[in-house]
Amino acid sequence: MPDDRDARQHRRARRCGQTTVIDLVGHHLRALGHLVHTTTEPSRGPIGQLARSHADVLHGYALASLVAADRYHHLDAELRPRRDSGHIVLCDRYLPSTLVLQRIDGVRLDFLEAVNAHVDLPDLAVLLTVAPRVAATRVHARGGAHSRFHQGPSSTAQEIVCYEQTATWLTDRRVPVLRVDTTTSSPNEVATTITEGIVAMLSTERVNPHPR
């Protein structure tokens, strides 16, 4: 008979995917009366689809350049128009992910800063954290790594370090950073925390508007 503790661990390991969380955040914000648009990067546009389909073939500076090109097109075609029409735009992966994954792929930070110099900084960066052992269990529960960027505990540890450095990079540029620990939290709990952070940010901006 299987140990119930193992079953609980397996359920925890399968939950808290980013796509699930962003959909829940969108649902919560709409319930509060906000206009919401959810999207992802690489985008669903032609450049984004090219980046997705060649992520295991292209490496380093070539992939970083393609991802940046997709981001500029994404901003022009989708992100800015939605924002300007009054929507809260929720993007699953954006500039902070680039500053982590492309650095793991061997790209220098100064190159990433240069090629992304004209993208819009996020109004709020949400960093989902997880204990390394749980991250490894979640990868195993999904049937293995879905990306060459997530290949085991060593890559997870490297990613954690890079995200901490990226959080500092964002803070230095006055981008608010919300860290949410997903180790033992359900997707709905994580989404609720993020929703509360977004609502608090919107309230602060109404009181103290500032240009980005």
Rank of each mutant, 00 (worst) to 15 (best):
R71S: 07
A167G: 11
A157S: 13
D70S: 01
G48D: 10
D110H: 10
A64I: 00
D181I: 09
I47V: 15
R138H: 05
V134T: 14
P46V: 11
T129F: 04
P42L: 01
H54G: 01
Q49C: 15
H10L: 15
V130R: 09
S154N: 13
N116I: 09
T38W: 07
F111C: 05
L66M: 02
E189K: 10
L121F: 12
V89P: 08
H140T: 12
A64P: 00
T195Q: 09
F111Q: 04
H28F: 12
V139N: 03
F111P: 00
P42S: 03
T193Q: 15
P132N: 12
R83F: 15
L24R: 07
T166I: 05
R14C: 05
I104W: 04
V177N: 00
G143R: 04
L112F: 02
V175C: 09
L29F: 05
I88V: 10
V89M: 02
L109H: 14
L101I: 13
G33P: 10
Q9K: 13
N188L: 08
H118D: 13
L32P: 05
P187M: 04
A77W: 11
R174L: 15
I88S: 08
R44C: 09
A167Q: 05
Y61D: 12
T129C: 02
D56R: 02
T40G: 03
V161T: 15
R174T: 15
S186Y: 08
V175Q: 06
P122T: 04
V25E: 04
R11Q: 12
S85Q: 10
P122L: 01
E196G: 00
H87S: 06
V139H: 02
L50N: 01
R103P: 09
T192Q: 05
R15P: 10
L90N: 09
T38Y: 01
P42H: 09
A167D: 05
T156M: 10
C91N: 08
S43Y: 03
L170R: 11
A68K: 01
G106P: 05
S154V: 15
R108K: 14
L95A: 06
E164S: 07
P187F: 09
L63K: 03
V199N: 06
R138I: 02
S203V: 08
A167N: 05
V126Y: 02
G17P: 03
A62T: 09
A117T: 10
A131H: 14
P96H: 03
V180Q: 08
T38S: 12
R52N: 03
Q165N: 07
E113M: 12
H59Q: 13
L95S: 03
C16A: 15
P187I: 00
D123Y: 06
V177S: 05
D110L: 06
G106M: 00
T182I: 08
P211D: 06
R14Q: 06
H87W: 00
V89T: 05
V100N: 03
L99K: 05
A157W: 04
